[in-house]
Simulated scan of single mutants.
Amino acid sequence: MNPFKQTIHNYPYALLRAALTLFKKTPDELPTAELRQAEIQALNEVKIESRILNTQEAAAVIISAQELQDAYQEIRGRYTDDESFFSDLKKNQLSKDSLEAALYRQCRVNVVLEFIASRAPDISEVEIGIYYHLHSEQFNRPERREACHILISINPDYRENTRVTAFSRMQEISEKLQKKPHKFADLALKHSECPTALQGGFLGLVPRGKLYPELDTVLFSIKVGEVSDIVESEIGFHLVLCRQIQKAETLSLQKATPKIREIMRDRLRRTCQREWLAGLSD
């Protein structure tokens, strides 16, 4: 490594973070070109961090021992034992002390940036209304249906799952449901070969286009509480239950306001931070 980089406080930790952020790999796993990219980002982050910590705002920031311990344990908790944890630290040119020092600096930086973001101006109702009308497509909610299913898969390698046998098994379940549709969850738990069997076959509240096309077509054609006829998809035979229908709607300004406020608030906070950072001297 370049001797200049070795003297930069917090560089090993910054390099590790950059490598994980950019490529989801540690620095030693990166090819030369990617490593260079991670190094450039790490150097930039360290420089920005130093500029932040040299400000008047940072001078008043104190990180408690508990806050530092929480940050340390969040990383330590990703490992099952000390040996693997400290081995990884060493591999990335870190020790317990240098990691804690890096986390202490990071915590101070985060507090300063949060303080700067708090200076963002309040959002007026007029601004919210303008956003709503300029981005109306964001507030169109498609019809969604709460679906459950029972699956008997087709697999010629298993006698009980040949196409003929699987269909015969599903017919038996279908006949039981015609008499007792309220038993859907019980029968799903007992017979379904989908992991959702443990939740009574529950697939969630889904819009059009999320399920297999065959299931999608059936789900959006049946009534609430109705169980479909047997449906075949590429993985096997299904019975589909529609538990609830949420009709398509366009959110009113009143309903959309909390989300708009959140979007605009985050945008203003980031703008406030960027402008403050741009005004810092090297």
Score class of each variant (00 low, 15 high):
249 E>N: 05
198 L>D: 14
94 L>T: 01
266 D>K: 14
151 L>W: 00
95 S>Y: 02
272 C>D: 08
253 L>A: 08
102 A>W: 00
124 S>V: 06
273 Q>W: 10
45 E>D: 11
57 E>G: 02
64 S>P: 10
173 I>F: 13
243 R>I: 07
170 M>S: 01
2 N>T: 15
77 G>S: 14
249 E>P: 03
161 N>H: 08
143 E>S: 08
232 E>M: 04
123 I>T: 08
229 D>N: 06
179 K>A: 10
80 T>A: 13
23 F>I: 07
166 A>L: 03
122 D>M: 14
89 L>W: 05
84 S>W: 15
99 L>C: 02
259 K>P: 03
25 K>N: 09
210 K>H: 14
110 N>D: 07
165 T>P: 00
42 A>K: 01
215 L>I: 08
199 Q>G: 15
157 D>C: 14
8 I>N: 03
38 A>W: 00
82 D>K: 07
88 D>R: 11
190 K>L: 10
78 R>D: 12
151 L>H: 00
216 D>T: 12
222 I>Q: 03
91 K>M: 15
209 G>E: 07
26 T>K: 06
48 I>W: 10
66 Q>H: 14
225 G>M: 06
74 E>H: 14
113 L>C: 06
152 I>F: 00
73 Q>C: 06
127 E>C: 10
64 S>Q: 07
194 C>Y: 04
46 V>T: 07
213 P>R: 15
245 I>K: 05
89 L>M: 10
258 P>A: 13
45 E>F: 04
98 S>P: 04
169 R>A: 04
52 I>R: 00
87 S>I: 13
263 I>D: 02
60 A>N: 11
170 M>W: 03
224 V>C: 10
185 A>V: 13
68 L>D: 00
189 L>T: 05
201 G>P: 04
8 I>T: 03
114 E>S: 12
178 Q>S: 11
165 T>K: 08
14 A>F: 01
250 T>N: 09
160 E>I: 13
121 P>A: 15
236 G>M: 06
103 L>H: 00
221 S>A: 09
25 K>C: 11
67 E>C: 04
98 S>E: 08
87 S>L: 14
102 A>N: 02
3 P>N: 07
27 P>I: 01
211 L>D: 07
44 N>S: 15
201 G>A: 10
232 E>W: 12
